[in-house]
Amino acid sequence: MKGLKIQDLISSGVYATVYFFVVFLATLILRFTIPTLNSLLIPGLSALLSGVVYLMVINRVPKFGAITIVGSIMAIFFLIFGYFPLAFVPSLLFPLLGDWVQTKTNINEKVRVYLSYTLFSFGLTGPILPLWFMKEAYIDSLLSRGKDMTYINSVFEPISTVSFFVSMGLTILFSIIGLMIGQKIYNKHFAKKSNQV
């Protein structure tokens, strides 16, 4: 069980790819349904849709490092495609914390899975946290990328204390609901009868 082997790395890479497309799907859904708030709700909706992917990771590759690899796919994306320079940090940090909770702690199994998944889901907050906590640096970053003030004002229009708590609260709530839904799907279609979650 110690250390990721080649097959584990391959499996983690496959799940990372699936997770990336789930996040992409969530982004598309929000962009066409709630364009004003779409970026703030991506972590929550992604958490709602990704529960079964997470369960496949922790059951098929139950070793430290797998969860981090899956979350890191988004860190790489944020780093390469010109997001705010620090956007990739939460996408590394939160999956790593979730990985540690899931594989290195001895707390109650159900609590451990829900807590680790919630931490993992916060990995997608990287692009939006600077909107509240690093506003001036974020504006400078947008200006350096050629964005005008009309665009910048539209980005910051929904940013408030209320929207922060709504975004973070929905990420927690949808992580719980998403994992509950994911458990039903996983147990029905993917789990061995003797190893259901």
Rank of each mutant, 00 (worst) to 15 (best):
F122D: 12
L124P: 04
G98F: 05
K110P: 02
D140W: 12
F88L: 03
E109T: 13
G126W: 07
W100C: 11
L124A: 03
L86G: 06
Y114P: 08
T103G: 09
L97T: 06
E136R: 12
P90M: 03
V89W: 00
T105R: 08
L129S: 10
K135I: 12
G98A: 11
L115K: 01
L115C: 09
V89Q: 00
I107M: 07
F120R: 02
P127Y: 13
T105V: 12
D140N: 14
F122P: 12
N106S: 15
L124D: 05
V113G: 01
A87S: 15
P127I: 01
L96K: 05
Q102S: 07
R112A: 09
W100Q: 08
Y138L: 08
R145K: 15
I107Y: 12
Y117H: 12
F133S: 09
G98L: 09
W132P: 01
N108H: 08
L92Y: 00
S91L: 06
L143D: 12
Y138H: 09
E136V: 13
V113W: 00
L97I: 13
L142D: 10
G126R: 02
D140F: 15
K110G: 06
P95C: 06
L93Y: 08
L86A: 13
W132R: 00
P127Q: 10
L124I: 04
G123W: 01
A87C: 07
F120T: 12
G126D: 03
S91D: 03
R145H: 15
L129H: 06
F88P: 00
V89R: 01
P90T: 11
I107R: 08
S141P: 13
L143P: 14
L92D: 03
L86I: 15
T118K: 01
K135N: 11
V111R: 00
Y114N: 06
L93R: 05
K110E: 10
S144I: 14
W132A: 00
G126H: 08
L119H: 08
F133A: 11
S121D: 04
Y117W: 11
V89C: 00
T105L: 07
Y117S: 13
L124V: 07
G123T: 10
S116K: 07
P90F: 02
L124K: 06
P95D: 10
P127S: 10
V101T: 09
N106F: 13
K110Q: 06
F133L: 13
L92T: 07
A87R: 03
F88Q: 00
L92H: 00
Q102L: 08
F94H: 05
K104E: 14
V111K: 01
K104L: 13
T105W: 11
Y114W: 04
I107L: 05
L92I: 15
L115V: 15
P95L: 03
K135Y: 10
F120Q: 03
Q102M: 14
I139M: 08
S116P: 10
E136K: 14
S91E: 08
I107F: 10
L92C: 03
R145W: 04
Q102V: 02
P127T: 07
L115E: 00
P95E: 13
L131Q: 05
L93C: 02
S141Q: 14
V113E: 03
K135E: 13
K104V: 10
P130E: 10
G98D: 02
D99F: 00
F88G: 02
P90K: 04
F133V: 14
Y114A: 01
P90A: 05
S121K: 07
V113M: 01
L93D: 03
T105A: 08
T118N: 05
L97E: 01
W132H: 03
A137H: 11
T118H: 04
G123C: 04
V113Q: 03
